[in-house]
Protein backbone atom coordinates (compact mmCIF):
# COMPACT_ATOMS: atom_id res chain seq x y z
CA UNK A 1 0.00 0.00 0.00
CA UNK A 2 2.75 2.45 0.94
CA UNK A 3 5.26 1.54 -1.77
CA UNK A 4 5.81 5.02 -3.05
CA UNK A 5 5.59 6.86 0.25
CA UNK A 6 9.29 7.88 0.20
CA UNK A 7 8.67 10.25 -2.67
CA UNK A 8 5.86 12.06 -0.85
CA UNK A 9 7.61 12.89 2.43
CA UNK A 10 11.15 14.13 2.42
CA UNK A 11 13.88 11.93 3.77
CA UNK A 12 14.71 14.04 6.81
CA UNK A 13 11.17 13.66 8.03
CA UNK A 14 11.26 9.91 7.55
CA UNK A 15 14.45 9.61 9.54
CA UNK A 16 13.06 11.96 12.15
CA UNK A 17 9.97 9.81 12.56
CA UNK A 18 11.97 6.61 12.63
CA UNK A 19 14.10 8.09 15.40
CA UNK A 20 11.06 9.08 17.48
CA UNK A 21 9.54 5.66 16.91
CA UNK A 22 12.68 3.96 18.15
CA UNK A 23 12.93 6.24 21.15
CA UNK A 24 9.35 5.30 21.90
CA UNK A 25 10.13 1.57 21.77
CA UNK A 26 13.14 1.98 24.04
CA UNK A 27 11.05 3.96 26.52
CA UNK A 28 8.22 1.41 26.39
CA UNK A 29 10.70 -1.36 27.10
CA UNK A 30 12.28 0.58 29.96
CA UNK A 31 9.00 1.51 31.60
CA UNK A 32 7.77 -2.06 31.29
CA UNK A 33 11.01 -3.37 32.79
CA UNK A 34 10.93 -1.02 35.76
CA UNK A 35 7.21 -1.45 36.40
CA UNK A 36 7.35 -5.25 36.33
CA UNK A 37 10.47 -5.29 38.52
CA UNK A 38 8.60 -3.20 41.10
CA UNK A 39 5.50 -5.41 40.86
CA UNK A 40 7.20 -8.83 40.84
CA UNK A 41 10.59 -8.81 42.49
CA UNK A 42 10.94 -9.07 46.22
CA UNK A 43 12.72 -5.99 47.56
CA UNK A 44 14.53 -7.74 50.41
CA UNK A 45 17.09 -9.13 47.94
CA UNK A 46 17.83 -12.25 49.98
CA UNK A 47 19.46 -13.91 46.99
CA UNK A 48 20.70 -12.94 43.57
CA UNK A 49 18.57 -15.43 41.62
CA UNK A 50 15.00 -14.86 40.53
CA UNK A 51 12.82 -17.54 42.11
CA UNK A 52 10.03 -19.45 40.35
CA UNK A 53 7.29 -17.20 41.66
CA UNK A 54 9.13 -14.10 40.48
CA UNK A 55 9.78 -15.60 37.07
CA UNK A 56 6.18 -16.48 36.39
CA UNK A 57 5.05 -13.12 37.74
CA UNK A 58 7.43 -11.42 35.29
CA UNK A 59 6.09 -13.36 32.32
CA UNK A 60 2.50 -12.50 33.17
CA UNK A 61 3.38 -8.91 33.93
CA UNK A 62 4.99 -8.45 30.49
CA UNK A 63 1.98 -10.07 28.84
CA UNK A 64 -0.52 -7.87 30.67
CA UNK A 65 1.53 -4.73 30.12
CA UNK A 66 1.53 -5.51 26.43
CA UNK A 67 -2.26 -5.90 26.45
CA UNK A 68 -2.70 -2.57 28.22
CA UNK A 69 -0.46 -0.95 25.60
CA UNK A 70 -2.66 -2.35 22.84
CA UNK A 71 -5.89 -1.49 24.60
CA UNK A 72 -4.92 2.13 25.12
CA UNK A 73 -3.52 2.28 21.59
CA UNK A 74 -6.99 1.35 20.31
CA UNK A 75 -8.63 3.95 22.51
CA UNK A 76 -6.30 6.60 21.20
CA UNK A 77 -7.53 5.58 17.79
CA UNK A 78 -4.11 5.28 16.29
CA UNK A 79 -5.37 2.50 14.07
CA UNK A 80 -1.99 0.85 14.22
CA UNK A 81 -0.43 -1.52 16.72
CA UNK A 82 1.75 0.26 19.30
CA UNK A 83 4.91 -1.37 17.95
Amino acid sequence: ANNDMPTALDKEQIFGMAEKEMEYRVELFNKLTHTCFAKCVEKRYKESELNMGENSCIDRCVSKYWQVTNLIGQLLGSGRPPM
Partner: peptide
Protein backbone atom coordinates in the same frame (compact mmCIF):
# COMPACT_ATOMS: atom_id res chain seq x y z
CA UNK B 1 25.09 -6.70 44.42
CA UNK B 2 22.02 -8.91 44.59
CA UNK B 3 19.73 -6.08 43.53
CA UNK B 4 21.85 -5.37 40.46
CA UNK B 5 22.19 -9.05 39.54
CA UNK B 6 18.47 -9.64 39.97
CA UNK B 7 17.66 -6.61 37.91
CA UNK B 8 19.93 -7.70 35.07
CA UNK B 9 18.39 -11.19 35.02
CA UNK B 10 14.97 -9.65 35.16
CA UNK B 11 15.78 -7.31 32.31
CA UNK B 12 17.04 -10.19 30.18
CA UNK B 13 13.87 -12.17 30.79
CA UNK B 14 11.66 -9.20 29.98
CA UNK B 15 13.62 -8.73 26.76
CA UNK B 16 12.92 -12.32 25.70
CA UNK B 17 9.20 -12.13 26.44
CA UNK B 18 8.96 -8.74 24.83
CA UNK B 19 10.62 -10.02 21.65
CA UNK B 20 8.16 -12.92 21.47
CA UNK B 21 5.16 -10.62 21.75
CA UNK B 22 6.70 -8.27 19.26
CA UNK B 23 7.15 -11.04 16.75
CA UNK B 24 3.61 -12.25 17.21
CA UNK B 25 2.31 -8.75 16.61
CA UNK B 26 4.56 -7.88 13.74
CA UNK B 27 2.88 -7.48 10.40
Amino acid sequence: RRCAEKFLKHSLRVGLRFAELNQGAAT
